[in-house]
Each structure stands twice: as C-alpha cells, then as structure tokens.
Nucleic acid binder design. Structure first.
Length: 475
RNA sequence: CGAGGAGUAGCGCAGUUUGGUAGCGCGCUUGGUUCGGGACCAAGAGGUCGUGGGUUCAAAUCCCGUCUCCUCGACCA
C-alpha cells in the first residue's frame, strides 16, 4: 500500500473524532464486529490489553483482601423485581430468555445486566453471624445491556467487567469501603493506565438504580467529552432487605447487612484509546501494552542481524519485558507504521550499522522521537525508558485535563464551555429541576460533585450553591 | 421510534442517470529482485451484485415489496 493511502486509513483525530476512534479500534485489530448487533469480538491484541488490566487490578484487589468468585449468567426474573428502583432502572435494557430445552420456561430468565440481585440472594444464604462479616467478593464476567446505540468498548450490548460486592455489619464500614475502592480505582488509573481521572460523588439523577450513593471516576477524552470509567456504589440496606441478607450481631439481634459494589469494564480500553491516541493510531501505556517493545530487524538477511535481534529479544524477555520480534517478510517501513498504529510504546531498530556500533536505534511512540541506546544493558535501558513514557503519558494527559477545566456562573457560560470541549465547574443548588435544565440547555450532565464547594450560587437558578459540580458532555 | 445514508470479490469502492459479456485499488497465492519510514516485476485465484417478486429478447442497472447495516437524535458502564 502506498504511503498516502496508509495515512488516510485513519481519520483525522481533530476533524472527525468518532470516526477516528472507530478506525483505530478496528484497524489496529483490537476487535471486530460480532454477528449480533452491538456485540464485539475481542481479538487477541485487544484481549491482551484486557488481560493486563485484569492482572494489575486483580493484584490490587487481592492486596486489599478481596476474593474472586463466580455467579451464574442467568437470573430469575423475580429476583430483578425485588428491589423496586433496581428493576425500574434496568428493565428497559435487559435481554430475557423465555425458552430453553425446546419448551417455554415457567419463569423467564434475564441475562445479567449486573449481579447485585443474584449475589444478594447467595450472600443472604451464606451469612448467618457477625463473624461472617465483612464478606468481600469480586467476579470477572460478562454482562449484557441491550443499548440502543453502541460503539466498540465504549458501549456494547455485551461487555466484560469485574464487579465487586461486599457486605458489612455497619453502614459506616460499607461507606468507607465504597470510598476506598474509588481511591483504588483512581490509583490504578494513574499508575497502570497513565490516565488522570476526576473522582467524586454522583448526583441523585446519575446514581445507580437501587443505590444510596454512587461515586464515579470520569476521564476526559481528546474531544473534551467525559467518559465514566468506573463506579462504586453504597447500597445501604436496600439490597440486603430485598434479599434477606441478615446476620445475628454480637448483641444477639438479627440485623440487615450493609452492601456496596464497584465495577470497571472493558470500557477502560476505550478510555485508554481516547486519552492517549494520536493521529497515527493507538498509544498504549507500557503497563498494559500487549507488547512493550517491538524489535524490527533492518536488512534481516545480512549476516548476523537476525541472530543479534534474537539475542536482544531474549535479553529483554529476561528483563521481564513483553517483546515482539517482527521477523516477517514485510519491509521495515511497513513494520514501523504497523506497530506505531498498534501503539507499541517502544520500537527498537537493529541493523548492521547499529550492531557494528554496539548501539540500537530506539523509537518511543508517545513522542515519536528516535534516539540511540547502548546494546549493553539493553534491558535496563529499555525499562528506564518505559518508565519515562508512563510518567510522560500521565503528565501530558493531566496537563490537558487541567487546562480544560473552566468555571461558569451561568447557563450560557456553561454552554460555551462544553461547546469548546471543556469540563465546566459550577455551583449547583442541589435541585433536580436545575440539573435537568442544564442538560436541556447544554446537553451536558453532572459528572461528579467536587469535594469542596467553591461556588457561591447555582448557575441555573441563582440560589445559594449547595455543591460544586463538574459538568460535561458524556459518552 | 424521528431524520439521513449504504448494501457489488476478504477489505475499500466504481458501474445504476441512458438496461447489452462483472470492473478498479488494497489484500491473498506462486516465482524472482528487495529491505534505515507502508518496495518492485511477472503470473494467478476469487463475485448467483442483501433478498423476494415484476417488466423485458436481455436487469447490478427500471418498478413494487422486504431484510440488514451505518450516522445523527431520545436511553445508557
């Protein structure tokens, strides 16, 4: 393929953001469309990113003392209706199984849109005494929500996620855990995804169906729109009462537990793509990149080149790096473009000239700069570079986010702000009517409440501000 | 569900106005030359034109029906 055709393979990130996103996802072979509308087939290159996310997050959960378990895909319809707000919130988007074994089922089964109900049911059986608490479990699974419009990773009918569920004897403990998990997610986003996030409480309008309080972490995309990248929910006793999650306390009384849940999904991959990607395609943070380093041999048929590449690969692998040696028949130029598009953080070019000088040519994807490193101690040098890339990616994204937060004192200022791709920080009286009006006027929603209230008046009605809110258009 | 657009080779498309043998680029196969930013030459394989009906000597093309997908709205991790 000619060079100009390659460039046109990916839409212009500035001019056509949605198309750019789809191009990157499909053309870098992260996913393919499934035969059923709204489903995606995650290809090995995309799944490897998910595996890395899983590994890193799972280690953090284990560190915090959370165990993994697995609950069934199908949930009796009657479970869904036990918690009034929950069923109302999810009813429009559940898929229902009505037939099985060639017969109509006596009770329809829903394909889980989330597992609060079935986990509540099981926890109710498992918990008897205060000694059984806290109960903290997590499951990695797929869920299904029949959304009207879909986009790979950002919103698909079926998606992969983890959902953690805990039961505590007291509301204070459950609330503390809800905030602790939010902090864990924030740290994870920073150190693994190299992605800055805004964290905070959600408004009543935006909270999870059936929760007392919902907290979220929001990431800012290239176009200034916000993406909910993770949530934690404090349920109070709502689900415990619906599913009979009771225990005998130290004082001998039968009490309902307090539950909380938290989740992140494959949407994080979409967030990564949109946070770091550029007009050449993907830019993957080293901690999650399927390959952290790709070695491209130059003049591969010349004596000793391939052998030197193989030796380098083994050395880098020995240093604990994920390495790809691209010894395919494609020309070097083709390989450069291919792996850049796929977002590999570091490329090493190794040819006769380098070998002679005891050096390797190193290209870093985030800045697209080439430099030279010594072939001796290659592992150490590349490790160091990957670390620099991680920091640089985070700092760059953070600076962009900070630059793009503006303050508003009126609806018009807010509209101007979101139109310019900004997160808009504004005062809010706390009334649903004003929140609705903001959405109608500016197509922007309250993403999270700020911890501190720094604004005097509500941007909508002018009354005394109860909260300071980050508003934005959202995916 | 409201408004637009598109279904032709694995992918991207042209051909439809004016009916007349199914085309192009990329990819793929084989052989050769190449290799420091998407190389080149040669030879090949691959399509009942989304689908059902109609008009006609003749339909990718005209008419009627139908299905699917995409984009933008309303709903949402």
């Amino acid at each position: 393929m000619a060079k100009d055709q390659f460039v046109s393979q990916i839409a212009d990130i500035e001019a056509d953001f949605p198309q750019w996103y789809t191009d990157v996802v499909i053309k870098t072979k992260l996913v393919d469309y499934g035969p059923v509308k709204g489903t995606m087939v995650i290809r090995p290159y995309g799944y490897a990113i998910w595996e890395n996310i899983q590994r890193e997050l799972d280690a953090r959960f284990k560190q915090a003392g959370v165990e993994n378990a697995y609950f069934p895909l199908l949930i009796p319809m009657s479970f869904m209706t036990k918690e009034a707000e929950h069923v109302e919130g999810f009813a429009p988007e559940v898929a229902v199984v009505t037939h099985a074994g060639g017969e109509k089922l006596a009770e329809p089964l829903v394909v889980r849109p989330t597992s609060e109900t079935i986990i509540g049911h099981m926890f109710g059986k498992w918990i008897e005494s205060w000694r059984d608490l806290p109960l903290r479990q997590n499951q990695w699974c797929n869920v299904m929500r029949w959304e009207k419009t879909t986009r790979p990773f950002l919103r698909t009918s079926e998606f992969l996620w983890q959902e953690g569920h805990s039961v505590y004897a007291t509301g204070e403990e459950a609330e503390r855990e809800t905030l602790a998990m939010l902090r864990l997610y924030g740290e994870f986003a920073k150190s693994v995804l190299c992605m800055p996030v805004l964290t905070g409480r959600k408004t009543e309008k935006e909270k999870f169906a059936g929760a007392v309080a919902t907290y979220g972490m929001e990431a800012m995309m290239h176009d200034g729109k916000s993406l909910q990248a993770g949530t934690t929910h404090y349920m109070g006793q709502n689900f415990a009462k619906a599913f009979g999650v009771q225990f005998t306390d130290k004082d001998g009384e039968l009490k309902f537990g307090y539950t909380m849940s938290y989740g992140v999904s494959t949407r994080l991959i979409g967030a990564l793509i949109m946070t770091h990607g550029d007009k050449r395609g993907l830019v993957l943070p080293p901690p999650v990149a399927p390959y952290q380093v790709v070695i491209v041999p130059i003049a591969a048929k010349k004596e000793g080149v391939l052998a030197a590449c193989e030796a380098l690969r083994e050395e880098l692998k020995g240093a604990g790096l994920r390495v790809m040696l691209d010894d395919s028949d494609n020309s070097p130029g083709w390989k450069f473009n291919e792996w850049e598009m796929k977002g590999v953080p570091v490329r090493i070019e190794l040819g006769p000239r380098d070998i002679e000088n005891g050096k390797m040519t190193v290209f870093r994807r985030d800045t697209c700069e080439k430099s030279e490193l010594s072939l001796a101690n290659a592992g150490e040098g590349v490790q160091k570079l990957l670390g620099e890339i991680s920091v640089s990616l985070y700092e760059k994204a953070k600076a962009r986010m900070e630059q793009r937060v503006v303050h508003a004192d009126s609806l018009q200022e807010l509209l101007d702000g979101v139109n310019a791709g900004r997160f808009v920080c504004a005062g809010w009286c706390g009334e649903r009517a004003c929140e609705d009006k903001v959405k109608e006027f500016a197509q922007a929603t309250a993403r999270v409440l700020s911890e501190k209230n720094t604004h005097a008046t509500c941007l909508c009605c002018g009354a005394k501000a109860k909260y300071t809110v980050y508003f934005a258009r959202a995916y």
